[in-house]
Design a binder for these strands. Sequence first.
DNA 1: GATCCGACATGGA
DNA 2: TCCATGTCGGATC
Length: 914
Amino acid sequence: MNAVEIEEAISALAEQPFDPDEFPYAFLEAFGRKSTEIKRLRSGHSNKSDLDGVLQRNHIHIKTCALGTVKETLDALRDSAATAKGKAKFILATDGQTLEAEDLSSDVPPIVCDYPEFPDHFGFFLPLAGISTVKQIRESAFDIKATGRLNRLYVELLKDNPEWGTSERRHDMNHFMARLIFCFFAEDTDIFSKADLFTSTIETMSAPDSSNTHEVIGELFKAMNTKPEDRAGAGRARWASVFPYVNGGLFSGSTDVPRFSRISRSYLLHIGNLDWKKINPDIFGSMIQAVADDEERGALGMHYTSVPNILKVLNPLFLDDLREKLEEAGDNTRKLLNLRNRMARIRVFDPACGSGNFLVIAYKEMRAIEAELNQRRGEGDRRSEIPLTNFRGIELRDFPAEIARLALIIAEYQCDVRHRGQKEALAEFLPLDAKNWITCGNALRLDWLSICPPTGTGVKMHSEDLFSTPLDQAEIDFENEGGETYVCGNPPFKGARKQSAEQKSDLAFIFQGGNDYKDCDYVAGWYLKGAAFLTVTKGALAFVSTSSVCEGEQVQHIWSRVFDSGSKIIFAHRPFAWRNNASNIAMVTCVIVGLGADTARVLGVFDDETLKHCHSVSPYLIPGEPIFVTAQKAPVSANLNQIVSGSMPRDGGNLLLGNTEKQELEAKAPGASKFLRRYSGTSELTNGTIRWCLWIEDGDLGAAKAIPEVAERIRAVEAFRLQSKAKTTNGYARIPHKFAQRSHKNGNAIIVSATSSQNREYLPADWINDQVIVSNAAYVVYGGELSQFACLVSRLHLAWVATVCGRMKTDYRYSKTLGWNTFPIPPLTEKNKADLNRCAEDILLAREAHFPATIADLYDPAKMPADLRAAHDRNDEVLERIYIGRRFRNDTERLEKLFDLYIRMTTGKGKKAG
DNA sequence: GATCCGACATGGA
DNA sequence: TCCATGTCGGATC
């Protein structure tokens, strides 16, 4: 069940007469507990309550009680031994009049409410349904409720008016929904002259059989699109005359209304009776997207960007600066006036605005600054100078674009009420004068300059150089020329392998030449286009994006272009986990990157909210020069051998065997032993698990196939490869007895894991012998010397790999071309090599001394044995002395030196921008 | 619920 | 044909 469904179920339960015996089960059912679980609870089988209530282990302890004893009951539940033993997260007591509940697992304040109101707190219990969500969504019961109700209406209307669901009319449908939402909001906030005016007018004027509902609503919409003085002439119905003139793009155009059935009419009235004052424009947009989108509804608020995350973009981009200027101005009226004039000219542009989250927050924050400013100037009720039309957006999907516009209008009204007072807010709210300033279209194809033209030039720019097709739409003039433009947003992330053909072609269009776009995330398009935009606009830019744009492969493709176009990184947030909704949504790791023209001031790098000031930010989001490494085919350091990735089976698991599987096979077919080899990936290397693989040379194929069990496995590999959708894999079906990619060589070798936990201080690496087949989960240096092992397990190398290689989530991902081949080592003397060899031996000896501890045990930072740590310290000391004659102070210094050396060793291969 | 890391599609050379 | 990388979700404690 999703949040909307739960909200509906809970609301339905609260409307039923209270049944003390049934309530606990009905409550659990409403939160999506399975009927089998509930059956077992009813039978007492799994009910662990010691208070004659209902206790579902790990979830909740519920007890219904006699009138007036709720508090005592809750106390008893809290003190109950069973509550503790059953690890109940929640306790809940109710007598049918009041309801009290506590979340024992967190410090969320407890609930005390009248019984009929408890559905308003359903977010409190969402963890019962396995939905862990951010606070803002949990606390937005109203927005979830409204979304659910609107969706029901939407679906019902489309059922009765199928043509409204077609692509030609979908826009009308969405526009109609936006109008409805506006009217519901207006009638609950005194924007309409009487409370519930809209809903009650429909209720009284339309027939209960719903036959003329669409006409009544259409008449109201027409009235709101006609100036009062023109209404008589236009033949507007008299009963609609109490409605104000609204227009502002919202009511212009077609006033067609879909036809209503009895059911949809009753849904409509029901929705109208909700209290729309509670709507929260910060987030209602991202919720309400779910109304028109099945996928969104499954994961309510999946595009919700939390306010703190939005502020991570907006504060360093420009809001902090405005606040500083406000501080500096103190009570100096002249300075305050200058600041106000500056703010009135600022444009905020979100070229991936969704339902307008960033624009709404930017607007509200600026209004708060302006309000403080006006207070200091003694003009507390002054009309705002910040024009809504300076907040521009582009959004691909129609419904969110409609909602973005509406959310801004509502935000403006709410800001007026907050900062100036209800009376002033009302006096100037209507008619809406803003036209359509959220553009619906593909941001990577539209001309940003015509949507958000550069200011102060007096010249309308349309630049085909800026990767744009001209916009075929009337331009909306900005108010107040000559200001700064701040571009912000959270553009869609789509990995290179996840993009549709259109998205691929969007990127190809923006990258203009080269095919490195094929390896880039979709969000890269926004950075490139944004950087081009900055060349002609005064201002700055910052986007939230997937961390991979600043890791590994993509760095060279994206940032070389951004730097070449004359932008630099002015601030950045280091990778952070993006939690927005249900736990079933994959956790994404994000960064925020802020760009400015080459002349812009640089702020620094945020790591977990802490700002580290610096004069230059590297595309790897550390303080440092704008240098990036490019993939190298061979090691740039003379002392390193080639490294290869391990052998890749692509076998559907059929060539691989666990230890017991191997023993079973050998018991049945002793002849199979000669085809079995130890198989080592990362897990085998670090955790000491044992696996085996079938390794059959072409000449042995006949002998291998003579063993039925082996022949069967070979057939399974063939079948697996044939049914793969990758052409290359299909090709390997011809050699089903072999790994798809084979890099095995005989002889001793160094093995290093391809992925490693971020928590380790050294990369897991080891010596292996030639009996072992290394899997593609690891890399191997065949014939490498111990001194190379010493480099591999050094702190210096880890610092390099952590910075320039890709990542798996936040863990390290080793790379041949970016990690090993680029690692710069100064020329080594024979003595250097001998010293490093000794260090490597010492490390291996120290490990051996702790046999049978695994690498995972030995390298757990909390448990690392002192002798092993000392051996590593000596290794680091010896290696670092080769670089600078002493140990480095920290990783910052290590990276500075490494980048410097890298550039010197790759002249012409790595570029330095600027 | 945090931590770790496997398996392969994909596309470049 | 050969080979390197990102992905992100799944296994495992």
